[in-house]
Amino acid sequence: MRLVVRTFSELCLTVGTLIVLFVVYVLYWTGVQAGIAGAAQIDTLQREWAATPVPAAPGPSPARVRPPYVPGRGIAVMYVPRLGREWKWPVLEGTGTGVLKKGLGHYAATGRLGETGNFAVAGHRRTYGDPFKDFPRLRPGDAVVLTDGTTWFTYRIDRGPHRTVPGDVAVVDPVPGKSRFDGPGRYLTLTTCDPEWGSSHRLVVWAHLDATQPVTDGRPQALDS
């Protein structure tokens, strides 16, 4: 009898400790790892950009061939002043679980950064650094700034945050559904989950390309306003 009680209480203790450890892992450790991985991705991108010098001719050069996106590799660095002055995350190609552990993920089937079409990006609301924790605070007019090493792209949010269901794939279409955009353009879509710790819905914002400038002209004003 005593053995049964003892074994049972030991089991309860073990399960309790396991649960506490798992909560620590989810709330804290994933954030530490994502912070390290994200910073490493940004480092890698900046080293690559430093190795390929910016063309001397100012302004966007349409003749320049941009390399295709490689799954799991960095594409750009994103800044969203509304989410914090220090807020910056790498955007990687693909939206798989492994990719989203290191930063934001670009939907592989959607458009390229700064080009006609819809550059759609997904990110964690919670865990793995909580990149889109404050997503509901985004408002029309907010800047979403990205750089690919040669150009700064400043997008302005037009609509959102819009709450939808996970099956609503039209929100990342080239002309996103429900966005009220009425024709082809250079768009950007951000998606994350809603509610904060759930997965029953998605939050979406849409933006259009407002301005571009070569990196040689310095940081865009939107970053410091």
């Binding site: 939907y107 997904a122 990110g123 989950c193 710790w197 998605r202």
Partner: peptide, 10 residues
Amino acid sequence: PFNDVTVDGQ
């Protein structure tokens, strides 16, 4: 469910 941040119809 914390990983489900994309719209993919799944």
